[in-house]
């Protein structure tokens, strides 16, 4: 199973096995990772599952669509070039080892 590492704003890390097919957001919620609010449950409505993807991994991700790009304009913490909505990142075997950093807040 692919492993995803979630790094909290205070630098504490959790590395979890997340089934392929789940989103990076769902992997966090199902494993009780703090720092991803996911208010809308993965419908790309709320921008509260914002993550900063490890810069080295950005290129390996599927490109974001216009909707995600729009929503990222409204995150609680600043948008950076490696900002993504974790509800839109589908876990695949190719993403094994992915590291995402969680912003300080989602609201």
């Amino acid at each position: 199973m692919p492993q995803i590492t979630y790094v909290a704003a205070d630098s504490t890390e959790r590395t979890l096995d997340v089934s392929a097919g789940l989103s990076v957001m769902r992997g966090a919620v199902m494993n009780d990772v703090d720092g991803i609010a996911a208010q809308c449950g993965g419908s790309a409505q709320c921008a509260t599952c914002h993550v900063y993807v490890d810069p080295k991994a950005v290129a390996a991700l599927e490109e974001m669509d216009e909707e995600e790009d729009d929503m990222l304009g409204y995150t609680a913490c600043e948008r950076r070039p490696n900002s993504r909505l974790s509800c839109r990142l589908q876990v695949t075997d190719a993403l094994d080892g992915l590291v995402v950093h969680l912003p300080e807040r989602q609201y």
Partner: peptide
Amino acid sequence: RPGEHMAARR
């Protein structure tokens, strides 16, 4: 038009 919706919210 999600971008317009978010702008409306703001």
